[in-house]
Nucleic acid binder design. Structure first.
Lengths: 135, 135
DNA sequence: CTTTACACTTGCAAAATGCAAGTAAAGTTA
DNA sequence: TAACTTTACTTGCATTTTGCAAGTGTAAAG
């Protein structure tokens, strides 16, 4: 199930081998925003990922140590997904994607407001967010 | 041919709709490094993209104004591809991907050396590179 | 005028994606 | 405690995308 086929040793290529598809970074995005998500939370995201694709992506991200599963405190029927440090470290990538998109697309107001904060002090924002996600 | 199916208005989602696949950012990478590439140059890149996939990606990137074609000065048989400003502006994304990958993979020495330069003065590096690519 | 270089296109098999329905365990309600 | 619901997936199948190999057309070179 876990075929890690490395196309080259270029860092960009290696990265894309793991999360270079239309869905993986959306999962990471959800977790950067929400810190912890259940399977159902991902399904409810606006883009409408199919449940089998979601399952496949979650497994791949877990195998690549981007995310990890943990028990839900309220119920054995629920599962929580969370970013590992490796996943959290995608935050700068995510921020730059947002800034790029802001320049070339029209994006929601609340996201614009957040990016305004980011631009005020990027390093500070990243540091604070990582701290929040890690505990 | 140019179906721009937007899944949501999230900036991340919009971005991935355009270049969220295993190949597009490698094309952008080649152009960020080389400034201008021919069709054959892309084919020669280490990852070994199939020629039909390359043609499809180049067309999609062109339709989305990430790259543009221009006449080769030496020959009518050759075509040059170059980044538009929109494509050049993916540089910060590309840099963060490289920095992330450097932390979690072993990457080639020459790329490490380049990233050392980047880390010394990220804003300066970006500014200088953009200037170089734009003229 | 024949050969080579270059930028693609085409055909087809294999893999990934997307949709709808189904399953199993856990929790909730009557 | 029996029936129902919620949750996290799995399964089957049609559609789409990818990958490989071979082919085409135009321009340049010999």
């Amino acid at each position: 199930m876990s075929k890690v086929k490395k196309r080259s040793d270029c860092p960009v290529s290696c990265s894309l081998d793991i999360w270079g598809d239309k869905w993986s970074l959306l999962i990471v995005r959800d977790l950067l925003f929400a810190k912890e998500c259940t399977y159902g939370d991902f399904l409810k995201s606006g883009e409408g990922i199919a449940t089998n694709i979601l399952a496949a992506r979650l497994l791949a991200l877990e195998e690549n140590k981007i995310i990890e599963k943990l028990a839900h405190p309220d119920s054995k029927a629920k599962v929580l997904y969370r970013l590992t440090r490796k996943g959290i470290d995608l935050l700068p990538v995510m921020i730059e994607i947002n800034l790029w998109a802001e320049k070339y697309f029209s994006i929601p107001e609340d996201r614009k407001a957040l990016l305004k904060e980011v631009k005020k002090d990027k390093a500070g924002f990243i540091k604070a967010t990582i701290k929040e996600l890690e505990r």
